[in-house]
Design a protein around this nucleic acid. Structure first.
Lengths: 154, 154
DNA sequence: CACTCATGAAACATATCGTGTTGCATGAGA
DNA sequence: TCTCATGCAACACGATATGTTTCATGAGTG
């Protein structure tokens, strides 16, 4: 549990959901991720609020994709998670009185801003559809006898 | 204490040291940083190992800059700190068996690599001399009656 | 209506890691 | 010998992602 893997995790969930027809329960998704259903619900909450997925209670309930995979980017998913902090590093003080620290913040800050801008731009360039296509390409490349997408669903 | 501020902190220390003539004790540096002398020693250990600073024990001991400020970049300092992890986010699994996760890792990984490359390139473009010059410019800009660099040293 | 299934939410435990702090050993100079 | 300062180890603390349990809510089924 070294770093924040929520974006990685929620993308994993979404791509698995794209392989299902109907709705999928948190429990089944959690089994695919080797984690706990509550963790899945926490991850999905923000996505539901932004209309990327829908959840239904009760019998036959679960999670459903309600967005166009080709119109949702990694950036959208990132925002749905609450735009978590990107960098593990930061300033010692955001509003320093010390002029030395202001100079340090200036140099580091602009570098971090540029890197963040590039990263989020890259996120905006990739749709869930791209990821899904990449997944299917890997499926095909792994041979005709490759495992199914969901071997544990049978 | 939200994020790793070691790079910011150690740059702060180095720039303050540049304003001193002789050696400076950890205690004095810690006072400038509002922290503990042991924290300063921890930060400086890696820099000493790489020959950026030197330390001496006993009477009159302390820390001295032994590098050319114009030849040491932020990247060098970053490496001296042990090249700490840059991003707060990462993969759920580095070597996943799941093809979905491989696709996710591929997309996220290349974006993170590009952003890291950009960030470190920016670090390599900035020397400690640049930061020091920036600091002195800020000193001059803050007016003739501005505080000294080390008002608490008098 | 009673029962079951599944989400929603809150509380708590756990692990990691940067930071702060204390204590003691080592070595250099007065 | 005494003092000063680094070096190092150990421990406490705070923040946060993650894992887990418990209970409430609501939707479908018999």
């Amino acid at each position: 549990m070294r770093r924040d893997s929520r974006l990685s995790g929620v993308l994993h969930v979404l791509l698995h959901m794209a392989e299902f027809d109907g709705s999928v329960t948190s429990e089944r998704l959690a089994a695919l991720m080797n984690t706990n259903p509550v963790v899945v619900r926490r991850l999905m909450g923000g996505l539901r609020d932004l209309g990327l997925v829908a959840s239904e209670k009760g019998h036959g309930g679960g999670w459903t994709l309600v967005c166009d995979l080709d119109r949702v980017t990694l950036y959208d998913v990132y925002v749905a998670l609450g735009s978590p902090g990107i960098f593990a590093m930061g300033h010692r003080s955001e509003e320093p009185a010390c002029l030395v620290e202001k100079a340090v913040n200036g140099a580091l800050g602009s570098a971090f801003e540029d890197a963040e801008r590039l990263l989020l731009a890259r996120f905006s360039d990739v749709t869930l559809g791209h990821l899904s296509a990449d997944f299917h390409a890997r499926m095909a490349a792994s041979g005709p006898c490759a495992q199914e997408a969901h071997p544990d669903v049978a």
